[in-house]
Design a protein around this nucleic acid. Structure first.
Lengths: 151, 151
DNA sequence: TTCGAAATGTAGCCAGGGCTTTATTCCGTG
DNA sequence: CACGGAATAAAGCCCTGGCTACATTTCGAA
């Protein structure tokens, strides 16, 4: 087939095709921060429950081995989201705590929306874990509007 | 703080804490297949448009360098989703084509649902790219039910 | 007070998914 | 029909995020 003008090329197809690289790059970036968000939220939870976040607890809740959690904490420290001293618990910086709050709230909205459109609560919790990281501010706002209008 | 019974531990908190590792592992697995799904869908699109999928086209649409696309195709071949001969175009196996169809349909449903709850179409397209991979069959079914009920 | 178990940290490995650079192969054109 | 540019492949690098194995520190209990 020639490389120039194939038969099945309508304008709309071309438009979406052109826009695709950006979409995928955006999705890739979102997934890069997703793990950081999860760790920050979880550390926030642990601090709220236990007063501090131990690496062992983080690892256990994330379902990973201890060194993996340690590495993640290192990244958080590098990003200025957490602080810790050797053989001591992990704590969030102001930025980290703010991020944790935002993530937690977004998670709640996503779950509520899924439930509102008929997803069983348990399934909603499961899927939200992956979905939430790809919900933009605009979409989150729309979700809140829909939930307000509905109830 | 002692490691046993901290003050802020109510039963519900403990339940969600126990369930968390599974949730995160599930989300990690979903993200592992996400890229494969994207590539398969895109190859399906290219075949529909041009009769074949060239590595250069795949790379351009995914927004990656050519070798990255080649590697991805290798993975698809290893997974039995695609076939190709050296210096020739890439084609989907039966499994690959079926997966592409499922992915495409799921993408459409997710976009429609986002629009239905008030997300602007353009934003919906952007966010759906990341969201769709974390939408389980149960959630997808609920989405379809909601869309049917709505109109 | 000492000692051993548990927690933390470190090192090194693997696979995935990006990248650039360099070698091949293909194919249209002169 | 030979050649040169474009497409593909191959090789090698980086970072992330898992893992295991091993070293170190802490801390409660004997």
């Amino acid at each position: 087939m020639p490389p120039d003008a194939p038969p099945t090329c309508d304008p709309q197809t071309d438009l979406t095709a052109d826009a695709q690289p950006d979409r995928f790059q955006r999705a890739r970036e979102a997934q890069a921060v997703a793990l950081l968000e999860d760790y920050v939220e979880m550390i926030g939870d642990l601090i709220a429950e236990h007063g501090e976040a131990r690496v062992a607890d983080i690892a256990q809740r994330m379902g990973v081995a201890h060194p993996t959690a340690t590495k993640a904490v290192s990244r958080l420290k590098r990003e200025g989201l957490a602080v810790s001293r050797p053989y001591r618990g992990v704590f969030l910086t102001e930025d980290g705590a703010a991020l944790a709050d935002r993530v937690r709230q977004r998670h709640r909205v996503v779950v509520d929306l899924l439930v509102a459109v008929g997803v069983p609560r348990e399934t909603a919790e499961l899927d939200a874990e992956g979905i939430e990281h790809h919900v933009s501010d605009a979409t989150l706002h729309a979700f809140e509007g829909f939930l307000d209008a509905k109830g």
